[in-house]
Design a protein around this nucleic acid. Structure first.
Length: 520
RNA sequence: GCCCCCAUCGUCCAGUGGCCGAGGACGCCGCCCUUUCAAGGCGGUAACACGGGUUCGAAUCCCGUUGGGGGUGCCA
């Protein structure tokens, strides 16, 4: 295999046509792993030759998402849009060598001829191959340039994952290498770049497997025509190929941007941890021999082997990803959990969390800027941490602490308070019992019969017994009155952090809501 | 149509001729724990697509069938 002395050179070569696709992220990961585990170089190349479909913001999104995942490029990003002169040189050379021919057929011409010939094949029929049309100019002049496929023989793709895959030339048509506008196409630009950038391993999705023999033919034609790599030195032999199984949806179709949740940016914004995301991605098509599923990136770099990658497509299972993310969140030291929550907690409603930071791009805290209480959140954090699977779920667990009025979930209110005839009695009893507890101890540092979780638990237990209910049944209406929801972090800790005054005020508010006059 | 790839529980993987009456994880179901909800613990559900070979022996090797997918663009 060709190298430049410093280990393998791999590349991740996405086309910026939309949000960063999870399938692309996995391809990037596997490339990155090969580079990391063998002292190689991870090259990033933006394949933006199709000006119609590419946008600068998408390219920036790719760089930013790769950074988030911890896979910064060692080299690049290179841009194909900045290398057109190089492609033009390659085309000139190929043309002079007779590997290409000009063609002025339109798609309609081709289809019409195929229909007339009774051929159902959609491919090109080679109509212009022997016409000897001249190249009109470097801008194409309305004539596309096609690659003259050998009629006989086969091309074999030596794939590390699948073994040798043989493609008969007879089944491949004369594909277009340069558009009639003069713009180079994927096969040409991609191969020229791989040669120039001294790429040794091409690791990409299986959807590219059928076009690989074309690339190989171009690679060989370039070499035969005397193409000199940009970095100098001998013309390199073919790179090692590895075609990864596709990522599919529940219908077993290739993951589509349009209907599947494939944007890495969305997972980031929802509060998935990059290390969990990478861990899950690695498991799609690969697994360590000892069957472990949770491991660090360092372990992944050490254990990963391209040869061990599966052949079959894998379903991207968000449920499993989410579970794994929960495991990672729970494993975090509390202090770090608090820090990692910051984008979802410290922002103010309406303004992007984190101020000028580009990320998270769409999340905002549901409470007004400035009303977030660092200390209160820190006290609740351990309890929240073990109850969320994504950081995006955090605000809903603690919003009652930072909003003047709790957001009442009408369904929960109806179910736990409205339909419960004993609710008013419980709330009144709770108002009295909690009101009798010592004031001013809501900061949790007080002693004695203060407003602390233990006391609140005991008092509520007594209250439950006095009304002949279980503690579980008793805390329901109280929880909804205080937090607006039926479920949430443990009640007594929540009350202690909320403080006596707000607890009493919210109980009063709930009673008013029920039509019971306050003050008995 | 043609070319190519693929095939173990619903899902992701383990399994590379005997250790497999197939193992783990997610999901789902039940129980336990429990102030809600989670988490955690315990148990359960559930698969080698089919048919031929090869072999003393096949989930594992070969062939075929069926099924699924990808490609077949002046997209990448």
């Amino acid at each position: 295999m060709p190298t430049t002395g410093g280990g393998p050179r791999v590349r991740f070569a996405p086309s910026p046509t939309g949000y960063f696709h999870v399938g692309s992220a996995r391809a990037a990961l596997f490339n990155w792993l090969v580079a990391r585990q063998s002292g190689g170089t991870f090259v990033l190349r933006i394949e933006d030759t199709d000006a119609e479909r590419n946008r600068e913001e998408w390219a920036e999104g790719i760089v930013s998402a790769l950074h988030w995942l911890g896979m910064d490029a060692d080299e690049g990003p290179y841009r194909q849009s900045a290398r057109s002169a190089r492609y033009a040189e390659a085309v000139d050379l190929l043309w002079s060598a007779g590997a290409l021919y000009a063609c002025d057929c339109t798609r309609d011409d081709i289809d019409a001829r195929n229909r007339a010939a009774g051929i159902a094949t959609p491919g090109y029929d080679g109509f212009c191959r022997a016409r000897g049309l001249e190249r009109v100019g470097p801008d194409g002049g309305g004539r596309a340039l096609r690659f003259a496929m050998p009629h006989e023989g086969t091309t074999t793709v030596a794939d590390v994952i699948r073994g040798d895959v043989v493609f008969p030339h007879g089944a491949m048509d004369d594909f277009v290498v340069v558009k009639s506008s003069g713009a180079p196409l994927f096969v040409l630009a991609n191969v020229v770049d791989d040669v120039d950038m001294a790429i040794t391993h091409v690791i990409r999705g299986e959807d590219l497997l059928p076009t690989t023999p074309r690339g190989i033919l171009v690679w060989q034609a370039l070499g035969a025509a005397g193409w000199v790599p940009e970095r100098g030195g001998a013309y390199p032999g073919l790179p090692v190929f590895a075609h990864l199984p596709l990522l599919v949806n529940e219908q077993r179709k290739k993951l589509s941007k349009r209907r599947d949740p494939v944007a890495v940016e969305d997972y980031r914004d929802k509060g998935y941890l990059p290390e969990a995301f990478v861990n899950y991605l690695a498991l799609l098509g690969w697994s360590p021999h000892d069957g472990r599923e949770v491991f660090t990136v360092d372990e992944l770099v050490e254990w990963f082997r391209l040869e061990d990658v599966n052949h079959a497509p894998a379903f991207f299972d968000v449920a499993k990803l989410t579970h794994m993310n929960g495991e990672y969140i729970r494993a975090l030291p509390v202090g770090e959990f608090i820090e990692r929550c910051r984008p979802w907690t410290s922002g103010g409603a309406g303004s992007p969390a984190g101020g000028a930071a580009p990320w998270p791009s769409r999340t905002t805290a549901p409470w007004p800027a400035g009303s977030f209480d660092e200390g209160a959140f820190a006290r609740m954090a351990p309890l929240v941490q073990e109850r969320v699977a994504t950081l995006g779920e955090v605000p809903a667990m603690v919003d009652f602490l930072f909003l003047d009025e709790p957001v009442v979930d009408e369904g929960d209110w109806a179910r736990v308070v409205g339909k419960d005839e004993g609710a008013a009695q419980i709330l009144e009893a709770a108002r009295a019992a909690y009101g009798a507890l010592g004031a001013g101890l809501g900061d949790g540092t007080g002693s004695g019969a203060g407003f602390d979780p233990e006391t609140l638990h005991r008092v509520t237990q007594e209250l439950a017994e006095s009304v002949g209910r279980t503690l579980a049944k008793t805390q329901g209406p109280i929880r909804v009155a205080l937090t607006g929801r039926r479920v949430g972090p443990p009640l007594f800790e929540s009350m202690a952090v909320l403080g006596r005054d707000r607890v009493l005020a919210r109980l009063d508010a709930a009673l008013r809501r029920l039509g019971v006059p306050p003050g008995t």
